[in-house]
Amino acid sequence: MGNLVVIFIGAILINNFVLSRFLGICPFLGVSKQVETATGMGLAVTFVMTVASAVTWVVQTYVLQRFDLMYLQTIAFILVIASLVQFVEMVIQKSSPTLYQALGVYLPLITTNCAVLGVTILNIDSSYNLLESMVHGFSAAIGFSLAIIIFAGIRERLEFANIPKPFQGFPIALITASLLSIAFLGFQGLQLL
């Protein structure tokens, strides 16, 4: 149990996927203009990452390892993730067309989001069991959501700030992201064990 708490806190604060591992930067910058869409993106990624962690663990343990097909890991995992993303896309399009429109191209882009593939491969590399993998996937996604929502909150305020012209738009967003990353560096000192 204690182990799960360590994984949970670790993936959210210490090894935050966006701010420490620099994975999933594309949606982090692309869908972070409004807190609402950022939250929607966070939820979609959370679902995909949690389920992908579970499914890829099963695929890895019961198919790839059993039949000695480890070299197919990347392509098999991407297959799993792509299918999940397709599924999530259908559900969101049905349940919330507004959110579907707001997420736009970034929703199908979760397919090639390195955060999702990253978490599944890290699960295997860290030799987590099924439960640990799911907790790791879930907490990594929570960390992603936390980062993107904080970032969206800051960017909403930046809209009204008086920014010099050369810094408007993406430059100031990148500077903000790096400051946020430095802030999260403070959690590196957290002693969990």
Binding site: V59, V63, L64, F67, D68, L69, L72, I75, A76, L79, V80, S83, Q86, F87, M90
Partner: peptide
């Protein structure tokens, strides 16, 4: 054969699900 079978199987499974 196992590689093709495994990936093909996944593909069929996910395809049917989708």
């Amino acid at each position: 054969v196992t590689a093709v079978g495994a990936l093909g199987g996944f593909g069929l499974l996910f395809g049917a699900g989708l």
